[in-house]
């Protein structure tokens, strides 16, 4: 059995290491894991999966512990998520989720990097101007964490292609930049019965929520889809980088909670932030009138 051979090699190469608090863990280095993948003709993803199943931790995750256990690290490794939009929010979300160890990431954006992106979009740089965001994002994921299985789509998310793009993702992260498109993504998530983690930014402000398929969702925030404005204050105030990274971090925290089967803090709620004066407030939506829940 290939996995038995893999596990044997992992155990041979794994080392006992010590955390800053002197507690011990068993780790495998990236170099050794790569050698084992080559020797057993398996993907790095699979080798690290076999290791995690036996509490052998890829060293890159050592500082996720003990906030995350080996079992939870494995759960993240086996998770499948889709990041829709790869701008200010999506770029930072991609970076964070690749680092923490979400194992299967789908990236969707039809846009290319432009000079006006450079103030806030972490994946943009002067050398990538004119290059597809989805392509750059996929390269970035592989550079950060080569064990991640990444799928990228250089196309815009629409009602027509949405179901196909989301595929078998367990949840979608809304990093889009128009309110209309957010409603389209929400509808696709409802059809696939998966949750959506959503955030929006403008100026120094941000908001975030989590929508499950049976929830009121964005309608509780914006009102009816038909009446919702298409753009917000970002059209005149722009978007500052710390607002983008802040709300991306909020989306990632909620995503990891959901992937680890923990309670979402923002379901049926709206987090509203302004990083300029460090205010943050959560509004809890009451159940809709006439609802029994």
């Amino acid at each position: 059995m290939k996995s038995n051979q893999t596990l044997k090699l992992l155990n041979e190469k794994a080392t006992q290491r010590t955390r800053p608090d002197q507690s011990r863990y068993t780790a495998i280095s990236l170099e050794d894991a790569r050698h084992i993948a080559a020797a057993t003709e398996q993907s790095l993803f699979r080798v690290e999966q076999i290791g995690l199943e036996d509490s052998i931790l890829p060293e890159r995750y050592s500082r996720n512990q003990k906030a995350l256990s080996c079992k939870q690290q494995l759960q993240l490794h086996m998770s499948k998520i889709a990041i829709i939009g790869l701008g200010g929010l999506g770029g930072a979300v991609t970076e964070i989720l690749a680092r923490i160890g979400v194992g299967n990431i789908t990236l969707v954006d039809g846009d290319c990097f432009d000079e006006s992106n450079l103030n806030r979009q972490l994946l943009s740089s002067s050398e990538f101007l004119g290059i597809a965001k989805a392509k750059v994002a996929a390269q970035r994921v592989k550079a950060i964490n080569p064990a991640v299985r990444v799928t990228s789509h250089e196309t815009f998310f629409t009602a027509k292609n949405g179901g196909e793009l989301l595929g078998d993702s367990q949840l979608a992260i809304d990093c889009l930049d128009t309110i209309r498109d957010r409603f389209i993504l929400e509808e696709c998530c409802r059809e696939l019965s998966i949750p959506m983690v959503s955030a929006a930014i403008g100026g120094t402000c941000g908001q975030a929520t989590v929508v499950f398929p049976t929830d009121q969702g964005l309608q509780a925030i914006y009102g009816k889809k038909e009446d919702a404005p298409s753009r917000g204050i970002e059209a005149s105030l722009g978007t500052l980088p710390f607002a983008a990274v802040y709300m991306a971090a909020v989306e990632c925290a909620e995503t990891v909670s959901l992937l680890l089967d923990k309670k979402s803090q923002l379901r049926n709620s709206l987090l509203v932030t302004d990083i300029k004066d460090h205010t943050a407030e959560i509004f809890h939506f009451p159940p809709p009138a006439g609802s029994s829940t």
Binding site: L89, D174, R231, E234
Partner: peptide, 10 residues
């Protein structure tokens, strides 16, 4: 009554 500006960017 809570009043928020439209925030839609990403």
């Amino acid at each position: 009554l809570a009043i928020f500006p439209v925030v839609g960017g990403g």
